[in-house]
Design a protein around this nucleic acid. Structure first.
Lengths: 342, 342
DNA sequence: CTGAAAGCGCTTACAG
DNA sequence: CTGAAAGCGCTTACAG
């Protein structure tokens, strides 16, 4: 009954060509949307493709041609808060372009990270690779990728070399700080991240800039390492201060959550005694009470853009700064609310 | 200087054969660890492989042979708490076996989930697919996979058909409940998940069984949908009870976290007034105060086992129940502690 | 606008 | 234990 050549196997380009009465080369042209095919012919081929439910086999395309139709997403930690969103956006963009996403979690502790990267590159020849922080700042990996001539897009990298997608951390921090100032806070502290994370530094710059505009200065500056635990420790430090800040800007959400947990366990009320803001909008930000006021990076969209930059004709793809979103939630409140004038 | 055939391109099997002075067939045998190669020959070939840093190209292997060296990991939500761990375990096992992991996030809302699956299957021909809940319970997807003859392993599926990897939910719930009983609780409630999640049902069975052994009965049973919000709602219900439970078993972590947040916002102290336990050990379980007592599934290991079952010779791979771990943390405390007898 | 031939880099089936 | 030949399903480069 079926018009397929042999038994019930998956149809190939030959089956389509036969059904449409053309050569396989013409089928190839239609499938790849190349110009210069007579309209009638194109339609006839497309019908055959439909009827047979034909889909070109990736391994054959990739062996014969210059493209693998594979995009690699490499990172250290698939558990990181951003991983899920990035993956979802990348998958969507890949699907739209007829590509597939290859995910490689690298073992951060392993000595042979570069080897792992190289192995993937040689075996799979992805047409492009997306790198997330902090992997995107690993010089060895960057060099390996460059040596193999694989296009790379970095997400929120430390520096501005090459093609990358990011938000404006400095500006976002400025806005978030202005939010606190607008709530009436004047004694505002900052809990920074590790020295080698430029994001933390940029956020600090924005923080200080916003304060300066209001003729304010940081009333306390602590340093953590982006973990929940260092947030808890910071709460203890704050608790011992003679003059405590009324609000604290933590450079990421995990530290902000630790700060909240630590402060509450020491008897401080959030946001009554202390307003807290974070950065990243981690999933946990809405799984706690009070929920965390923070900044959301449009990670899904960033990943989509990354794929598009990778697939754009060479030279077309430049870097991209995407807009962030301030998420105002329950961990911030007004300080010394003034009566309205009316 | 280099012994490579032409220019600086990536070495192929031909280059290795030439250098080792054998046929490409012999190189193939060595690379695939087939038996029946003279020891000397094998060594010679291996040296050539090393020297050239040769790695077989996946697309060629997969076009010529019966294997694609690709394992697919399919799911709806890459943001789900388990996703990161599963991915990490699967990647590790794939790497160890010379395979690569292909990740497909399916759009849950889309009408064409099956189409998405089919597209991946036809284009990439993975040698096996891992399905996580709730995708692993989608009958359409299961049928598509079966029709294409792709081996499947399901992680924590609803029913026991086919090959799967799980923990013993019932037993874990029993142990967790015994923990509460051991702390002196006698009025213990249960907050269940959606009706169609068999995991919730199994956990309830274990809960009831443990109570029965202690001649106790559930003092309250609520129903949520596994989200934070329904946990918050449950807290309100509890708060209005004339006789409140002193401990609640929530069928997953998100509801437990909502319960904690809701209860605290209503003035109850956790664990002083109410002990709370969850299930899953979501990342957020340790990002709150009090941190959540819960059950950990060895997700990473489960995913590793899943890959191994997929790659095992047909017939070899049966299903597997892995041991869970009770994580005792700060959301549980003794009730009416009795003085020790000594 | 269309097609015949060669070839991508491997594995399969067969022969010795 | 080893190898020569054919072929997987496409794309490339070329011809008309």
């Amino acid at each position: 009954m079926a018009t397929r050549s042999k038994d019930n196997s998956v149809p190939t380009i030959v089956d389509v060509a036969r059904m449409a009465g053309v050569s396989i080369k013409t089928v190839s042209r239609v499938v790849n949307a190349e110009a210069g095919v007579h309209e009638e012919t194109r339609v006839r081929v497309q019908e055959a493709v439909q009827r047979l439910n034909y889909r070109p086999k990736l391994s054959a395309r990739s062996l014969a041609g210059a493209r693998s139709f594979l995009i690699g997403l490499f990172y250290y930690d698939p558990q990181a808060a951003y991983a899920g969103n990035v993956q979802r956006g990348a998958t969507r963009a890949c699907r739209a372009a007829g590509y597939h996403l290859l995910v490689e979690s690298l073992d951060r502790e392993a000595q042979d990270i570069n080897d792992q990267v190289q192995r993937s590159l040689v075996a799979l020849r992805p047409d492009g690779v997306i790198l997330t922080p902090p992997l995107c700042d690993n010089e060895d990996v960057l060099a390996t990728l460059a040596a193999s001539n694989t296009p790379v897009v970095r997400l929120s990298p430390r520096d501005d070399r090459g093609v990358h997608v990011r938000i404006d951390d400095r500006l976002a921090a400025e806005e978030l700080t202005r939010l606190l100032i607008g709530l009436g806070h004047e004694r505002i502290g900052f809990l920074g991240g590790p020295d080698d994370q430029i994001a933390s530094e940029r956020r600090y710059e924005g923080f200080v800039a916003a304060l300066a505009l209001a003729r304010l200065k940081p009333c306390w500056v602590g340093q953590g390492d982006f973990t929940f635990e260092t947030g808890v420790q910071a709460a203890r430090q704050l608790h011992q201060l003679a003059q405590r800040p009324t609000a604290v800007f933590a450079a990421n959400d995990y530290m902000a959550l630790g700060l909240i947990a630590g402060a509450e366990s020491l008897g401080m009320r959030i946001p009554g005694d202390l307003s807290v803001v974070g950065f990243d909008d981690a999933p946990a930000a809405t799984l706690v009470w009070p929920s965390l006021t923070t900044v959301r990076q449009p990670l899904e969209q960033m990943a989509e853009v990354a794929v598009q930059l990778l697939l754009a004709p060479p030279g077309q793809g430049s870097s991209c700064v995407l807009p962030h979103e301030i998420q105002v939630r329950a961990s911030t409140a007004a300080w010394h609310p003034k009566p309205s004038r009316s």
